[in-house]
Design a protein around this nucleic acid. Structure first.
Length: 93
DNA sequence: ATATTGACATTTA
DNA sequence: ATAAATGCCAATA
């Protein structure tokens, strides 16, 4: 699962749901839970994962940090929502 | 092995 | 539009 998460290209975002679906499961919660407990630095950029409705969700170091990182990558985040969320959604090929 | 919980999602009011 | 309730499946304890 971490492989999937780390597969997200920069400037692009994904959702817990998509990741779960990509691994042929519906355990979106498990994805987030696992990441929450096991933050693999640099190996897995968890800050590129958000909720299916475009909201940021949560982050270990704080949502603000996550938003900052996303902005740094070029993803505009306004009022806790990702701009052109569905367009920036990374789809596994 | 079982029980509880969770960085969610979807539906219903 | 928001809020609450319910479902979901894996991870942790």
């Amino acid at each position: 699962m971490l492989a999937l998460t780390s597969r997200i290209p920069p400037g692009r975002v994904s959702t817990y749901r998509l990741i779960a679906e990509a691994m042929n499961t519906r355990a979106y919660r498990a994805v987030g839970a696992a990441l929450h407990k096991n933050i693999n630095p640099v190996t897995v950029p968890c800050h590129r994962v958000c909720n299916s409705d475009g909201s940021i969700g949560g982050y270990s170091g704080g949502v603000e940090k996550k938003i900052a990182l996303l902005m740094q990558e070029g993803v505009e985040v306004k009022n806790g929502r990702i701009v052109d969320f569905e367009r920036r959604l990374f789809r596994v090929f």
